[in-house]
Design a protein around this nucleic acid. Sequence first.
DNA 1: ATGGTAGGGTTCCTA
Length: 272
Amino acid sequence: MPQRIGFLLECLWHAVHHQPMRITTWNVNSLNVRLPHLLEYLTEFEPDIVALQETKLPDEKFPAPEIEAAGYRVIFSGQKTYNGVAILSRQEAGEIVSGIPEFDDPQQRLLAATIDGVRIVNVYIPNGQEVGSEKYAYKFAWLSAFRDFLKLEMEKHERLVVLGDFNIAPADSDVHDPKRWQGKIMCSDDEREMFAEIINLGLVDTVRELYPDEPMFSWWDYRMNAFRRRWGIRIDHLLATPLMQPAAAGVATDYRARERPSDHAPVWVDFN
DNA sequence: ATGGTAGGGTTCCTA
């Protein structure tokens, strides 16, 4: 009899843990300004997990009450003016890590947590400004430390999603005008090689897996009417271990078309 | 080769 109960409990556990999960990433470019858009997004898409970047808020000014009132728990690692990351979730977040361990960095760009048995690693990878610049060197120092950290995380967690603003367009198919962007920041060979190294740790680019031939842009420059002209690039990604199987994905471009939008649109993936 | 816009914090930095 106890054996049978144990079996039933196990079935129940699996049933609970095999619910589809909607996981999403959005560089909001100031959560202060974008909070109304975020709250609308939560209502419209009902995501299970949301990774935010560029909150641009110190922790004491984070709008946790508004987010909690919308039915989400939230953890955050922010600073004044720049950077800042947060994770919203229906379920509680555990094993929280903020910043890359052993990489001394005043910029708040990484937040990891385990939610519903899935390891979530939210990143705001440095932009790099210009190929060869000081900030470009910082981007690579950051990426090297991040790659090494991710390798360790993947050894500990079979079910893992690393998501966020990578500031890298992995291929020419991720760029509206590959000629104009060739060798430029976010599209240089070295950056793409680093992206491939991260993939080669054993991750799947879930959006590309589901849409091998669509543009799937996630960022459009504020300048030159770039969004209206469809001048976008795909730099926001959700990479997952093979156990995390993507069933559907999309970019909520509508949020880029609104009044006072972020320059990024939310990217979402439903996992089986 | 350059310029254009947005956010935040102030007379400029980052994207």
